[in-house]
Design a protein around this nucleic acid. Structure first.
Lengths: 115, 115
DNA sequence: TCTGTGATTCTATACTTATAGAATCACAGA
DNA sequence: TCTGTGATTCTATAAGTATAGAATCACAGA
């Protein structure tokens, strides 16, 4: 029996999708996931992706506001990490929408063990 | 051995995420997935979500441009359907990024058979 | 406490997106 | 071919987002 859609969850997921819906920010997420669970400091993200510090700071702020990243301070360094709980929520939502109900998408077509 | 990230795929996924990153358009996708594979005509989408026709038309155009929906004409009616191939690509990308490499997110935590 | 480095916030600007009424186009039935 | 309905395109405006230099804040080491 399919759950009634949760309006708050939909809103939250729309905001997360929007936050990841620009190339700079999606690349930031990629980078943080590839550096998971250690994370990265702002300067290294900026030099890796060639983004000016003030621009980068705004992107990180947006990702943080949507809960997609976490920050911890270590002296003068700020370590940013991907927030896996938020990503789980988002992926779970997308899977429910696409693979439950009418089974428009089959999970085994998306997640292939060998990939 | 992790694949080298595909820049074109990342760009395309950023655009798809952006297209689904507003509440009206995410709800349109939910609706089309719940009506899959039949799809829905524009008027019914608009009355269901209470969106004026010109606004709705722009949203559908955006989703179509990013490949997230397909259209077929039947007389005066346009039937919009979710494009499952695009959704598979997007979900696959997100899974690769989140669950491969450092396995930041575990697939079994996202997709639960019982849900 | 002074100095240098990491990072954010201030400020400004350009650009993109969202919204929606009015006009037009597309099609089918009389 | 005229008419009505479904849907898009035209037009305009409001709102939001992205970018980045300059100024400031935060912290640690001398």
């Amino acid at each position: 029996m399919p759950k009634k859609p949760d309006p708050d969850l939909t809103t939250r997921c729309a905001d997360m999708l929007s936050a990841m819906g620009t190339e700079p920010r999606l690349r930031i997420m990629q980078l943080l996931l590839s550096a998971h669970p250690t994370g990265m400091i702002v300067g290294d993200i900026g030099s890796e992706l060639d983004i000016p510090s003030s621009t980068l700071s705004h992107h990180l702020d947006k990702l943080k506001n949507e809960g997609l990243v976490k920050v911890r301070r270590d002296g003068t360094f700020l370590w940013y990490t991907a927030n896996t709980d938020a990503l789980k929520e988002l992926l779970g939502f997308l899977f429910d929408e696409c693979c439950s109900r009418n089974k428009a998408v089959k999970p085994e077509e998306v997640f292939q063990a060998g990939r």
